[in-house]
Amino acid sequence: MQNVTRLPERQAEPEKITINLGHVDLGRIDLLVREGFYANRTDFIRTAIRNQLTNEGRSVAQTIDRYQLELGLFDITRADLEAMATAGEKLRLKVVGLARIAADVTPELAEATIGSLNVLGSLQASKAVKAALKDRTT
């Protein structure tokens, strides 16, 4: 993974998700917000998710080790992939977090240099590159 740059977490934009909650749960959240325990619904949900991830931290760490996953944010540049092509290597990346493939990476370069891409989190790449890697991305 020498050609992949690990970025500080603050450089990544958060991913938006949508969830469905029952009326009673939503009302209970609103009550806590109204009483000042949380600034808003989003604050409550982020806090709940972080607390649950902390509670499950050991299990997550063991799973990352077991599957040899990389944890973090990865920026895959054109130069990285061109260097791999020159070396005759293929990138096989397993990420828990964010993998970004630079906008100047062509679908042809991606196909030639990316053997597999397993992303648990988010993959940011052009539509053309995502389409080219469709059979190699999980």
Rank of each mutant, 00 (worst) to 15 (best):
K90C: 04
Y67M: 09
L32F: 08
A103I: 14
A79Y: 15
V119H: 11
D65T: 10
L31M: 11
I64S: 07
N20H: 15
A87F: 00
N118V: 14
Q11G: 06
I101R: 00
F44L: 04
R78L: 00
T77H: 07
N40H: 07
N20R: 09
N55P: 00
G22L: 08
E56W: 06
T113I: 03
K94E: 09
E70C: 12
I17M: 06
E70S: 12
L81C: 02
A132C: 04
V24K: 15
R34Q: 12
G97W: 05
D25G: 13
T77K: 02
L71R: 08
T18A: 01
T63C: 13
S126V: 07
I49H: 11
A110F: 04
P14Y: 00
A61Q: 07
V60E: 01
K16M: 11
A79G: 05
A125Y: 02
I64Y: 02
G115A: 09
R46S: 14
A83R: 03
A39Y: 15
D30H: 04
R34T: 15
V95A: 07
V129C: 03
F74Q: 01
R50Y: 08
A87E: 07
V4K: 05
R41T: 06
T42L: 09
E111W: 12
D80S: 11
V95N: 05
A128L: 12
G57H: 06
T106C: 09
A39R: 14
T138Q: 05
G115K: 02
Q52N: 11
R66G: 00
A110E: 02
N3K: 05
R100P: 01
L117K: 01
R46N: 12
E35C: 14
M1C: 09
A102S: 10
T54S: 06
R100W: 07
T42I: 06
R78Q: 08
I64R: 02
E56S: 09
G121F: 07
L98A: 07
L7A: 03
L31V: 15
I64G: 01
K90Q: 11
Y38P: 01
E15K: 15
A102T: 07
V119R: 00
G88Q: 04
A110R: 02
L120Y: 05
H23C: 07
V33F: 08
T106V: 12
L21E: 08
E13C: 07
V4W: 01
I29R: 01
V129Q: 01
T47A: 11
P107A: 09
P8T: 11
N20T: 12
S122N: 14
G121D: 03
A125E: 04
L21I: 09
R6C: 10
E13A: 13
R34H: 10
L133F: 06
L123A: 04
A83H: 02
S122R: 15
P8Y: 00
L109M: 10
T5I: 13
Q52C: 12
A132V: 11
L133Q: 08
